[in-house]
Design a protein around this nucleic acid. Sequence first.
DNA 1: CATGAATGAGCATTCATTCAT
DNA 2: TATGAATGAATGCTCATTCAT
Lengths: 215, 215, 215, 215
Amino acid sequence: MGNIMLKSNKNNKDKRIKFGYGSLPPGGVKIAEALRTLLEKKDFNSITTAEIAEASGVNEALIYKYFGSKRELLHSLIDDFHREYVEDMQLRLKGIKGALNKLRKLIWEHINLYDTERVYARVVLIEARTHPGFFESSTYNLVREYTRLFKDIINEGINNGEIRDDISVWSIKQVILGAIEHVCLPNVIFSKKIFADDLTEDICNMIFYGIRRKD
Amino acid sequence: MGNIMLKSNKNNKDKRIKFGYGSLPPGGVKIAEALRTLLEKKDFNSITTAEIAEASGVNEALIYKYFGSKRELLHSLIDDFHREYVEDMQLRLKGIKGALNKLRKLIWEHINLYDTERVYARVVLIEARTHPGFFESSTYNLVREYTRLFKDIINEGINNGEIRDDISVWSIKQVILGAIEHVCLPNVIFSKKIFADDLTEDICNMIFYGIRRKD
Amino acid sequence: MGNIMLKSNKNNKDKRIKFGYGSLPPGGVKIAEALRTLLEKKDFNSITTAEIAEASGVNEALIYKYFGSKRELLHSLIDDFHREYVEDMQLRLKGIKGALNKLRKLIWEHINLYDTERVYARVVLIEARTHPGFFESSTYNLVREYTRLFKDIINEGINNGEIRDDISVWSIKQVILGAIEHVCLPNVIFSKKIFADDLTEDICNMIFYGIRRKD
Amino acid sequence: MGNIMLKSNKNNKDKRIKFGYGSLPPGGVKIAEALRTLLEKKDFNSITTAEIAEASGVNEALIYKYFGSKRELLHSLIDDFHREYVEDMQLRLKGIKGALNKLRKLIWEHINLYDTERVYARVVLIEARTHPGFFESSTYNLVREYTRLFKDIINEGINNGEIRDDISVWSIKQVILGAIEHVCLPNVIFSKKIFADDLTEDICNMIFYGIRRKD
DNA sequence: CATGAATGAGCATTCATTCAT
DNA sequence: TATGAATGAATGCTCATTCAT
């Protein structure tokens, strides 16, 4: 398991806008950025539209012009980020040989994401899912798209003999994602560093042993 | 994982209410009990004073007479419970020989508490500390009192040679409490059972190995 | 048909509270009265809660304490008035002999009500029913209770031979109420005097001729 | 009651749109048409400028370029329609002999208008006049122009001895227009068919009897 | 001629809190 | 000890309207 460390992890040195706000007009971008910034300090429910408007220097009504509602703004934020992440991931998996290796890479990236993108992590892990209707949201659809990546690789592993074929793909995916969340959540909540290398090691040790085809 | 169902720790001989509400007048007790019950179903922020008043059958204004504010009522709840718990704990440690054995007992009780007192666990682990000013609250003072128990035992271990003397007491205590929270929090959040026996075993295995004096 | 006349009909000389506001606390009464007054000048939808609060000299929130919502406040107003009216009516019918005579009395009172209680008339005839959900409201239940009065008398007439028995009670009631509304509505909208005597005469002439048993 | 379906009064030789929108640029026409269409389904107050813009496929701001305000757009709609109607009417009266015959024709056309142009009828009868300032509007000026038609014919009748000269022209006009509105309004409100032939008959029977010069 | 962007003022409603009794 | 009455300050959200381009 990862070690506990107390220093905060603000190692973002690049100034690229983390969430790529599609083709929004300036006001829209400012709104999204404002929420993102506010989310670093307090949770979504206690951020008011008035605050978002003030922080972004635009009128409150503009939030509704561009995003429809406060919650849709949140989802828009996550979706944009998520979409970009999933696309990236497909590229980052290129050139990796073997399903288990790909899986390891995927796990590392996932954990690392939680480490480097705290706002995203907290929102996805806590805020979004506590809200009824999350599982009908577009955000959840993106989550499903992402899990397809997992399933594809697991299937690849089953087909080429790396992974045993007597456990359902769904179960394997669930166990992996469950494990990742389980180990990351406390650190996300307590704002502690997550050591992606160590955690990936631990999780792969445990799970790969169980799913690897023995024959 | 182990699956032994632990008996609940309600060994109070009398049928005194769970949280022992000091010397509150009847109205105050009803208010505190009402909040406690409500906390089983929803989080503190979404419980209104009107709800509390209705559930307790008293007037809303009485909450302010007795507790000053909604949040102070919450803290009062936790404090009472906490105080009782700390007192109990001192008794339960009687007759146990060896600092490490006492520590193990303390760890088990702490984990078991999180398992059996979900309301308390959720409030302490999540709600209370997300609020600015928590660290100035009386509740936090009680937390400090509780940690003194830990420190006393650790010191005892150092003095009698069970525990190495080259790690600070504070660090040891931090690691232990951090570990406990770390393993309990996800289960508290996702409302899953916490297996105190197994978790105590795991934590002690890991930590005692590191802190035991090898001489 | 009634004649058209332009002078306004503010002949309320008694200062009794027209709507009897049950046992509401002073604030509640003031709110209800304020809305009633405002309704004399503008329609319900364009009256804001802020206006009601200001007019009644109380806080906006009190509207919600006592009535739950702006619309429920409106319904409460109508209901109270309606209830009183229906009770009154039962008394006023005492001592009248013959179903047709009672019917005539009921028609006259109904028309006269629309003449003397313009706010009530406009709300009931226009505002309330344009709102979806009106037919599920408590107000509509009172309307049904009122129509039972009609039906009872019609039945009485059928039983004692005054009224033919080959038209359904429901149809007769519908025709009468339809006629009353039909003749009163324009005058309510245009704030013109309604001559209850003449209109009652006209309606009874037409309808009684058709429903009277010829045998 | 009669039930002759009256042919619609669309005798415009060209396929020019119903409301002839003066010399408006294309955008203006689209806006006016959009509002007209929307008015068929909901009342003016609950139609938003955003809806109008969307329905007309133009930008919201254009409404203000062309019409100044939402309400002026409404008035512009009515005015255009009204103007055309008054012009038409003058032609339709050609060749009719006798003031009372002309009056009858005018009454029939007016009632028929309310039957065939429901949007116009509802707006003129209900929406426009509930708004303060209606009587200062250009729309009201058109109404006055229209009533001059009435007065001219009444005067003609007085001069040629058809109509008694001891009732003021104004009163006669008022009574006639009042009667028309009186009988049409409920049907407009309840969206029921208006039988122009029958209603014209009834109104003329009643009023002509009273105003005809007995010699 | 037309638009994208932005806004001020207001909306019904909520809620922790206060105060006179 | 307890309460009924009342409220200030928001809250998420809407909409007619303006303005620079």
